[in-house]
Nucleic acid binder design. Structure first.
Lengths: 224, 224
DNA sequence: TTGTGATTCGAACGAACGTTCGACTCAGGA
DNA sequence: TCCTGAGTCGAACGTTCGTTCGAATCACAA
């Protein structure tokens, strides 16, 4: 019996995995509240009551999708970051890791992005905690960029959340047949972000006239 | 009788406006599907059946909120863009207009961002059409930037949709007591975007310093 | 073969859903 | 005074919701 055999939050049974995949698709298509357990039953081929043998509630279904997705993304990210010290390279790894997972699991990511404040109680707390850790990792990388002189003096919270905005908004517009895939997409977004937060004065200093240099320095200070 | 007195999609009655405001708040808090007509009845102080005197269905409630919000944002934007020809300035106006409306009407904007694919039929088509016009305006401004040598040769669709991502993601994190208001926020995001898409090789040219001067002007106004 | 626990499901539960209906109030014109 | 129509609402409609329960089936050890 899967419920007893596993420490509650792990995915053990193949069938549970399959149910979660179908649930993610249904949630992505109709939204959490708009989707009924009967929709999920129909999509997964498991009877209505049969679902409750594997998952104890609709909320837990959503919780499992969210926590599993976050854990996977975060652990993959940490593995890829190991041994890389250049801040810009680390930033590109974060963006690429996020977008690659995004485009490989669009349903799960849409659920993550849309059903942000549906969960309650302990489920909510656990998901919020791992999300906070993920955000913290991005924040650290931004601070590294700044220490390395590759980022202007601007609100780190806004910079990082803007980056997540760029990335997470993708679920509203990306069409796999039309739009670039993860590689090209993460190149563009990494570049946009890195140029966007770059210390313009230093980056352009080689070719800048001294008058323009002064203007940029004041501009950077004024908005920091 | 409001239904007969107006060409169907206009907001005429004060009471209807009041119902729409409360509806937007309820939709923002619980999501469209998660919110019940009874929730809206309770929030607005109008009886359950009384609501149907003003709006013919729950879907129409959502439609009215979305179409009215888009129309307002787009018409305000066009008015502000009149007579401004500098592409960077036009971009900053778009960002500022979007974020100012965003922070002034957070409930409506959250509904716009989250309940993107709920509407069906004619309602859906009308909202999609005005959204397309709004997106088109942003796209035109980006092309102007590029013609003026202030943007690299990158996929305009991705650049513009990334900008919208930055802006629309705000509803997931912005706390009015903690985070910057519209002025400072739009300065930061405009700068991030303009630097982000800027042609790095031409950083020393006249066009860059003119863009930076414009940025400085807006920044000084915001902080002064 | 029998027994046991894992697995599955049809049928039903009470609650909540969006919407409708008919009756009521009330202001203003005839 | 009576009539009309805008405005309002309590009560109910039929449907769908998340969840439960008990019985049936299955694989396999004894």
């Amino acid at each position: 019996m899967p419920r007893a055999a596993t420490p509650d939050s792990r995915i053990a049974s193949r069938k549970l995995e399959m149910i979660l995949r179908h649930s993610a698709r249904v949630f992505a298509e109709k939204g959490y509240e708009g989707a009924s357990i009967r929709d999920i039953s129909r999509a997964s081929g498991v009877s209505l009551s049969g679902l409750y043998y594997y998952v104890e509630s609709k909320q837990k279904l959503l919780y499992l999708i969210q926590i599993y997705t976050f854990r996977t993304i975060l652990s993959q990210l940490r593995r890829k970051l190991e041994g890389v010290s250049d801040p810009a390279a680390r930033l590109r790894i974060l963006v690429h890791n996020h977008l690659e997972y995004f485009l490989r699991h669009p349903m799960e990511m849409k659920v993550l992005a849309r059903e942000d404040d549906v969960l309650a109680g302990e489920y909510r707390k656990e998901v919020a905690e791992i999300k906070r850790r993920y955000y913290g990792t991005a924040l650290e990388i931004f601070e590294e960029l700044r220490r390395a002189g590759q980022a202007r003096q601007l609100n780190p919270r806004i910079a990082v959340l803007s980056l997540f905005g760029m990335m997470n908004w993708i679920h509203t517009w990306h069409r796999p047949q039309v739009d670039p895939q993860a590689e090209a997409l993460s190149d563009v977004m990494s570049q946009m972000f890195l140029h966007g937060v770059m210390n313009g004065h230093r980056a352009a200093s080689q070719k800048l006239s001294s008058a323009a240099r002064g203007t940029l320095k004041v501009a950077a200070r004024a908005t920091g």
